[in-house]
Design a protein around this nucleic acid. Structure first.
Lengths: 218, 218, 218, 218
DNA sequence: TATGAATGAGGCTTCATTCAT
DNA sequence: GATGAATGAAGCCTCATTCAT
């Protein structure tokens, strides 16, 4: 296995130098994700990460300048995966419904990548560069969505600045809810219905305008 | 000076054994608060804490079984201070307005105890026992408040379970907003008006019933 | 032995805390002297030094801020010993003879402290702070001696600046000679007669004025 | 460009296998000289040397058995350059004057190859094989010069053994003087006049016989 | 109870060398 | 011959905890 990998076709392929290099780096990334998700940044020692990746400690420094460099890349990388994941699961319904879909998709993503929450939550202090990058990514995209909804008339009476505040509320809410409701025992579970419904009520009434055509939530 | 303290009256007082004991423990607490707030749990070494407290490292272990024991007590202790602080600043207006007051008071508390946010945020992973305790404290009290509002007719159409979800959303929103808006440079600043107004709109429309008497937010 | 030491009187003495502290620091010093003398600064790892001293690695950092701090103190400390050693062995004969005595005494000192040469020689690069300190110590004292000789008429025709240059020549000469002639096999030996006589001729003729009373070297 | 070099004629020349081989080895030599001169042997890692040389780390081991082998060759190689350099700058005046010329030329060489001093000084411990080789080279040649002067009557009263001692004094003196006076800030400067004059007085009076024909230094 | 030196495990990083391409 | 990723030993330093005074 050290010299080969299973290509998409299922065939075992010899890797050339460049591929092998990328493969090792990828293993380190994946290992770090697993370790940070499980033990937190502070306990994510290079020794642990390399052991998980199945390479020598020295190998780490062929791929990253230092420990921090990897840690700083962790969140933005997964963050992008998250955005894609959610976008794919957002339909073409009215704006309020789409927001609920995004909310649900977030919880689905956490089930896919259970490490995400811890990585996100600790990043502010242990990977501040990556944290800021991630937050800007998300906030920018999210605010754009809200502005479009306003243009379409689905939201009124909120300024751009208020949108930014709203977006942070939404992100914070997701974080706390998922930490509270996503874990049962060691396993990661789906968000309960009453969480979805509470969010739906709060957001559709609080942010969006009643839309007779689509029917609001009441 | 190590054997005495300035009482409120301004007199220098000799402390007896019990008082001196409590005094040292208190110093360790305060030092830990400062250090964890500034450097995070992971960097809050016993050496740093005792240095900040002005006692020898060995002294630490006369007051706490080990490092973790102190860390676990940190958040619940400050959390109680926070509850008192907010309660004192909540008036007798209608339920929706009280919620806004609580929201504002939270930001005021952060300015009083700037270490709080970091202690709270990291505690989930570094002081899980204390974290759970704190969260239960807050959630229980908060849900009780919402139930009372429902009884009074200020909220309709939300179940108890949904209240719990709502409370987590609120707590998460506070956390993200304060991290985003409370710090400018190194200093801790008040929450901007548009943050307050965005919260007011979302919450009064989303959670509370329009109250003709008091006038809703529009 | 870890709890006691042989006092000058020969009695075994319990050490109090302060004494024990000083004793450990002294052991680290002595160990470092031995190790640097034998393996050079670059190979003088903290592990080696503490092993030689019979303490744990961590103990090192209770006594020195870091490895460099000890290394920087090494040369000046031994340098002072050297100055005392040589001074004690310098008689009251005429200036030229005193210079020869100092020269010989230098070689005697090296036999006493065989580590000195290597410590001195490498210090320029591995302990620059200590090196500069040592050089200034020696040069200042040496120039003062030459000035006195000039005042006494034993030297003429040399300026202060030239004295400084002369002193550096002398120090350099000692270093090279000792490295060439002091070691035979692993043992440290006395300077051969022809080295002494060559120095005597060069210096008495080259620096000092012929003194009929004392008879010059021819 | 890696496959060719600018010949003296100005034409770009394809190198054959042997030339290319020598060229790479030469680059490693030059890089090592620069690195050791700047950082010392201990910091002259293979990584640093190969980076400076612009080749891969592995390439190093195609040209040298190991790191030490290159280090041991460094000093003798430059030492030979030095001998040539000094010989070219020594005229046909009387013996005493020639000695002063050699002395001055040494300082000029250091300005040409500022790395030399550090390489020389550390070599004793980090490249002992090369160091001994170098010292023998120099001492032998130097003693031969002094013997010739004695044959010519410019020196009397010194035995062969004493010559050897004198030569070591001279070498040591040069080393210390150059370290003290050749560096100002980061730049390498010429030896001050008073250093030259002090050396001239000491040596012409101390070693050479007054020569009426050529005039001694007084 | 207070002290602070001693401990040794463990963390990050650098390094010389090897080897498959 | 050239490359550069992989290796694992070793270096410096920090840390939580213990214990004699």
């Amino acid at each position: 296995m050290t010299q080969s990998s299973h290509a998409a076709s299922g065939k075992v392929t010899k890797l050339n130098r460049v591929e092998r290099n990328a493969w090792t780096k990828r293993r380190l990334f994946d290992a770090a994700t697993k370790i940070v998700g499980k033990y937190g940044y502070a306990e994510a020692s290079v020794a642990r990460i390399t052991e998980e990746a199945g390479v020598a400690q020295g190998t780490f420094y062929n791929h990253f300048e230092n420990r921090q460099e990897l840690l700083d890349q962790l969140l933005p990388k997964i963050g992008i995966d998250m955005v894609h994941f959610i976008r794919e699961r957002t339909g073409t319904a009215d704006a309020a419904r789409q927001e609920i879909e995004r909310f649900s998709a977030f919880f689905d993503f956490i089930r896919e990548v259970p490490e995400f929450l811890r990585i996100l939550n600790e990043a502010e202090y242990f990977a501040p560069v990556g944290y800021q990058k991630h937050l800007d990514n998300i906030a920018t995209a999210y605010v754009r969505i809200l502005k479009r909804a306003r243009t379409a008339g689905a939201i009124v009476d909120f300024s751009d600045e208020e949108f930014e505040a709203i977006v942070h509320m939404f992100m914070g809410a997701r974080g706390y809810l998922s930490r509270r409701y996503s874990y049962t025992g060691g396993a990661v579970t789906a968000a309960p219905d009453h969480v979805i419904s509470a969010y739906r009520k709060l957001v559709t009434r609080g942010l969006f305008t009643p839309d007779k055509g689509n029917g609001n939530d009441r």
